[in-house]
Amino acid sequence: MVERQTAFSRIIPHAVLLTGVAIVAFPVYLAVIGSTHETAVIANGQMPLTPGREAFDTYYRTIFTGGSRTTREPVGTMLLNSFTMAMLIALGKIAISILSAYAVVYFRFPFRRAAFWMIFVTLMLPVEVRIYPTYKVAADLGLLDSMAGLTLPLIASATATLLFRQFFMTIPDELVEASKIDGAGPFRFFFDTLLPLSRTNMAALFVILFIYGWNQYLWPLLITTRDDMQTIVIGIKKMIVTSDALTEWQVVMATAVLAMLPPVAVVVLMQKLFVRGLVETEK
């Protein structure tokens, strides 16, 4: 196709793109703006489009003391909880699934196929489907209201195992054989060759899984009751529903903005590796 660049043909795509960006960005902008005004300004139903003067106060109060009416916990604690949970889930998933993929691909043991299929089948059972038995197990193990209870049941990952398996299968057998001749046992091969080669894959997975962990709602809602174990996603929800008082919209907005920052930071910081991990085929 011959591309003819006229002024007009350049304007159209840009106009489309800008419209798209505006549609996506406007609510975010509103949230940022909303977090800089007083409750009363927002509550009268006419949301201003320019920043107010309360930004510093609102954010300070949100992070360190929390909303005055509902959750009683400072958002700082929630951020920390969410961050710890997302980190543990992402890192745990990567560690577990890279190890199980390593076992499935490189070792011959009885029922290897069966083991692989069992992992594969769990793909069809998301947390929501098995939530009652999972809760029961977590409760029996005394994991309620603990970080272990928040993260452990979410750590097993068929998707990540599958991804690593596919990647390992593309690594030529000769590399394993060369390692064997070079005197590297299974541990050495894993740490010296497989891990470094999986770096970009791990990065891509980390980004996806961190966001997955960060956005968890249903499971934390069930497993935590204590306020100091609350994650930020649940915190926002609780702040909005105030039955007998005015919702502190500026605090809600500030919390929403704060909740957005860590996932954005992860994506921005790891973007290069992330894209390479998804695209790269050469090892």
């Binding site: 030529p172 000769e174 590399l175 054989e177 060369a178 064997k180 001749i181 070079d182 005197g183 590297a184 010296d192 060759t193 470094p196 080669l197 770096r199 090892k283």
Partner: peptide
């Protein structure tokens, strides 16, 4: 294989892609 005191050259070379030439030889 490691204890047979042999060295092997493979058809596709099987070099460790993430290691430098020096490290490949030193490994």
């Amino acid at each position: 294989p490691a204890d047979r005191d042999i060295a092997m050259v493979f058809q596709n070379y099987a070099l460790y892609p993430h290691m430098s030439v020096y490290d490949n030889m030193a490994y």
